[in-house]
């Protein structure tokens, strides 16, 4: 296994994950993950609680460091620089620059409560990309209209419903024009009647050709939107393939057991 150089990835993969291991103390949470995600495709990750889904997602934008293996996004190694046969850890400034190309949407939104909706969305373009404020505001207004919240620009997050907050969080992630969007259970903290409005926004992005990895328990959404469904258990990928295969004709016993519980 060798890590790629920027020129030599050679595939049309937007994300390459190779033999990634990660432990928290004695607990090995990721036990050798291999995964490729092609540009423009939607990958849905399923799996029981504690199987390492969030941890995997967090390693992709280096919120969590890997112990072994490597991850590349758009042909660039995440968190490391390769020289010869060594991977050198990048300085924080460089990691931050890489993160601006990867959007992350959290289960509990993590909007900045002291900033208005508009300020939440323009913060990163201005501070991390150095965009002029005027351009950032114009772009943010377009994004808010796209997620159906144009009239909420001046509101504070706590004045919005959970579904509206998550849509703002999606707009905030999109404001950096990322190459890749990561969603960690974007609808799990929502009341059932609000799940649909958030999934609709994500579906719309999928149709627009955004590359996405979505951790979710919404099987219906996976069936409708996913190009690839990945089933994880105990830190390994047990099974992956098109939704019609993994969801309807699972080969592995563990996948079948899981699906029979959530369906």
């Amino acid at each position: 296994m060798s890590a790629p150089t920027k020129e030599a990835t050679g595939s049309d993969a937007m994300v390459e994950i190779r033999s990634v291991h990660k432990s928290f103390g004695p607990l090995e949470v990721l036990r050798g993950i291999d995964l490729s995600v092609r540009a423009g495709e939607v990958t849905v990750v399923l799996g029981p609680s504690g199987s390492g889904k969030s941890t995997l997602l967090r390693t992709i934008n280096h919120l969590e460091k890997v112990d072994q293996g490597w991850i590349s996004v758009d042909g660039t190694l995440v968190g490391y620089r390769r020289s010869g046969n060594k991977l050198y850890e990048l300085r924080e400034r460089e990691v931050l620059r890489q993160r601006t190309r990867i959007g992350f949407v959290f289960q509990n939104f993590n909007l900045f409560p002291h900033l208005t909706v508009l300020e939440n969305v323009i913060e990163a373009p201005i501070a991390a990309l150095g965009r002029p404020r005027k351009d950032a505001v114009a772009a943010a207004e377009k994004l808010l209209a796209r997620v159906g919240l144009a009239e909420k620009a001046g509101a504070y997050p706590k004045q919005l419903s959970g579904g509206q907050q998550q849509r703002v969080a999606i707009a905030r992630a999109l404001a950096l024009e990322p190459k890749l969007l990561l969603f960690d259970e974007p609808t799990s903290a929502l009341d059932p009647e609000l799940v649909g409005e958030v999934l609709d926004v994500i579906k719309d992005l999928a149709r627009g050709g955004t590359t996405m990895i979505v951790v979710t328990h919404e099987i219906g959404f996976a069936r409708e939107v996913a190009d690839t469904v990945v089933f994880m258990d105990e830190g390994r990928i047990v099974e992956q393939g098109p939704p019609a295969d993994v969801l309807d004709r699972p080969v592995q016993e563990r996948t079948r057991a899981f699906l029979s519980k959530v369906l």
Binding site: L96, R99, F104, F112, E123
Partner: peptide
């Protein structure tokens, strides 16, 4: 989560401290 959101948006340490 506030710090993680700021980190994932690429905000630098000084900006995270002062603004978030």
């Amino acid at each position: 989560g506030q710090l993680e959101a700021a980190q994932s948006l690429g905000l630098g340490p000084w900006r995270r401290l002062r603004r978030i």
